[in-house]
């Protein structure tokens, strides 16, 4: 079972619970068969929703580091409140990304902060399809719209999206961008 540390331990600007974040992450890690230690850092000073995942090495016991702005875990109907559904999707996407980074065929993937918008979106779509097959409920049309914004509003782009959404076991160089 993964050890999970969440900072801050106590939130002051948003109504989030570090224990609940850890619990959701633990459940997702088990489903993804990830046993690595996980460190989660939430920036509660901003309502934006940028997030990133990194691993400190490619070894099987590498520490996974997830960084999220508070909007990534937020209930958009009740601002500053936590959304279980959103948290599952955001943390699930980051854990899938970290899990990819532990694979040899993702060794060439740049750090998240250096990804282009197109690379970031393509990887997000690849994660979105897998989240759906894990039993979560990402809204596919959102991912499709994001993908069209980055790659174009054309039929061939939609075909590429469908292929990515349905894929498993891709390597970094299989992703467009």
């Amino acid at each position: 079972m993964s050890t999970i540390a969440v900072t801050p331990e106590r939130f002051t600007l948003v109504a989030y619970d570090a224990d609940r974040i850890a619990e959701i992450t633990r459940g997702l890690a088990e489903r993804l068969q990830l046993t690595n230690p996980i460190v989660i850092e939430v920036d509660e000073r901003t309502p934006l929703g940028k997030m990133s995942a990194s691993v400190d090495s490619a070894s099987s016991d590498a520490t996974i580091r997830l960084q999220l702005e508070s909007g990534a875990l937020e209930d958009t109907k009740n601002l500053t409140n936590f959304s279980d559904t959103r948290a599952h999707l955001s943390l699930g996407r980051l854990l899938l990304r970290a899990s990819d980074r532990l694979r040899d065929d993702f060794a060439d993937a740049p750090p998240d902060r250096d990804l282009t918008n197109a690379q970031n979106t393509a990887w997000k779509v690849y994660c979105g399809g897998r989240l759906e097959r894990l039993g979560l409920a990402p809204i596919q049309q959102q991912y499709r719209y994001d993908f069209r914004n980055r790659f174009g509003f054309r039929d061939d782009v939609d075909t590429l999206f469908d292929r990515l959404w349905a894929s498993e076991n891709l390597g970094w160089h299989d992703l467009p961008g």
């Binding site: 958009t76 109907k77 601002l79 809204i139 049309q141 959102q142 991912y143 719209y145 994001d146």
Partner: peptide, 12 residues
């Protein structure tokens, strides 16, 4: 909104 992937009432 539907085209962009938003559900009605998704935001406050």
């Amino acid at each position: 909104s539907d085209w962009m992937g938003t559900e009605l009432g998704q935001f406050s």
